[in-house]
Design a protein around this nucleic acid. Structure first.
Lengths: 67, 67
DNA sequence: TGGCAGTTATAACACTTGTTATATTCACAA
DNA sequence: TTGTGAATATAACAAGTGTTATAACTGCCA
């Protein structure tokens, strides 16, 4: 519900795909700093970034969707 | 060369697809204000927004790619 | 041991974006 | 004519982002 577990989703995604923050950032089309801030709860994703993240999950994660 | 013709690309895209700024914004996953600022040269797109825009063009425009 | 490289955490600054509000323009109906 | 709604232009503010720089924490090898 209320979410800061976006942070957890990013960490989980990165863990499953075994990517560095830098690599994931590149794949998502955002900067390393952005991924790092997401994981450390410094910011929450913008509208577009969230959409991109979800799309990426659907395409690259075994179980595709969340929840 | 230097580009503010991103502005023109947005206007052209919107013209070809016959969409309002609001409609295009929704399709791209950004706000109306963002599309409006792009068209009026107030801002240039972020890394992610530009990627999304190009992807959208490839998928929805007859001639798909730019130049 | 020390150094080196990769990864991660953090900060500052300028710029972009989302939200909200206001104003203008325009077409069309009453 | 008036007015009503849609589309557009603009502004202000908070929040997210990109870039750059720095520091800490690894693991690995000479």
């Amino acid at each position: 519900m209320g979410n800061d577990d976006f942070s957890e989703q990013v960490k989980a995604l990165r863990g499953e795909l075994n990517l560095s923050q830098k690599e994931l950032a590149h794949l998502l089309g955002v900067s390393f700093a952005t991924v790092n801030r997401w994981e450390n709860g410094k910011t929450t994703p913008s509208k577009l970034a969230l959409r991109q993240f979800e799309l990426f999950c659907q395409k690259h994660v075994p179980g595709g969707e969340k929840k």
